[in-house]
């Protein structure tokens, strides 16, 4: 159900009112297709086939009999992978993600984003895996492309998370252990964590050869800190509270936050990670568009970096 708004994009608040996550994701993607009409970016995950000399013990099923007939030599034909791309969606569902000023939380937004990406990839025939986490790994689905997998993915996403703290290191290490094949890893989080632990965790991912995209989801209230009344502000993760006069605290906060964001951006750039900062009031279609655009640019970046190196 693609609603055409004035800006031709789906309003996130209206989107979040759709209860079913799968339906939500489909509306975003379909709207995206409709709005885009034609995508120049499909087919980017094709792997070439290779031949390798047969060694005893290889499965004779994979012998290239034609070649053997022609040349009398035995080669194993390595088939194309079942899917073009293995994409892992890492969704942070910690308590800090449950904050939301606009009627829905950042976690809702992150879920919808993950579901949208999952749907999008499955449309393309890519295998999609999922890992949700807070302090530890909550749900894990290996990357697959088969009927019903998308449904399972949606269900896993919809499970509520009760964890308090955010710890990026442990889940990222775990995903590195679990995923041996190189693939695309999409991390959706607010990245409210100390910078040093963040950079070491992200470097783990890049080090194992994965392509990493980070969506940093932030609430508009977090960005602007536009509270008016003095109150006790309670940390959703630690439960600690402090008394604040927002008008006094705002300037300092914005300064600190932008420093943090800048540092995160720098870290990502250093590690060759695509970093996309998303406000939870932003329509998902534009996010999806940014995502695809960034991926298209990425090839150039890497190439350039490689050339430099």
């Amino acid at each position: 159900m693609a609603t055409t708004t004035a800006s031709n994009y789906l309003d996130p608040a209206a989107l979040m009112s759709i209860r079913n996550l799968e339906l939500r994701a489909r509306s975003v993607v379909e709207g995206f297709w409709h709005g885009l009409h034609r995508s120049p970016y499909h087919g980017f995950s094709v792997e070439f086939t290779e031949y390798r000399a047969y060694t005893p013990g290889d499965d004779p099923r994979y012998l290239d009999w034609k070649l053997a007939g022609r040349t009398d030599r035995y080669f194993i034909k390595k088939f194309e992978d079942e899917t073009n791309l293995r994409c892992y969606l890492l969704v942070d569902l910690s308590r800090s993600m449950s904050f939301g000023s606009g009627g829905y939380s950042k976690a809702d937004y992150a879920r919808t984003l993950a579901a949208t990406l999952g749907w999008f990839h499955s449309q393309q025939g890519d295998a999609t895996g999922l890992m949700t986490f807070d302090g530890a790994v909550r749900e894990y689905l290996p990357a697959r492309h088969r009927p019903g997998h998308l449904r399972q993915l949606m269900l896993a996403l919809e499970k509520p998370a009760e964890g308090r703290s955010t710890d990026l290191t442990a889940p990222l290490r775990r995903i590195v252990e679990l995923v041996r094949k190189r693939g695309l890893i999409v991390l959706i989080s607010d990245l409210f964590a100390p910078l040093d632990s963040l950079s070491s965790a992200l470097s783990l991912l890049t080090a194992s050869g994965h392509e990493v995209i980070v969506f940093q989801v932030l609430d508009p209230a977090e960005l602007n800190f536009d509270f008016s009344t003095a109150a006790r502000f309670e940390d959703l993760e630690t439960g600690r509270d402090i008394f604040l006069e927002p008008s006094l605290a705002r300037a300092k906060y914005v300064e600190k936050l932008s420093a943090h964001l800048e540092a995160v951006r720098e870290t990502c750039q250093k590690l060759g990670i695509m970093h996309l900062q998303v406000s939870s009031s932003q329509p998902l279609e534009t996010v999806l568009f940014d995502f695809l655009k960034a991926r298209a640019d990425r090839g150039k970046v890497v190439r350039r970096r490689a050339a430099v190196a």
Binding site: M97, D219, F227, F233, D235, T238, I242, L244, K256, H260
Partner: peptide
Amino acid sequence: RTTREKTPFSTLMFLEPSPPR
């Protein structure tokens, strides 16, 4: 006055307590 109105917030990483007037 001092006990009422707790506002939940995602993180206090960037906040410093500012005493009320």
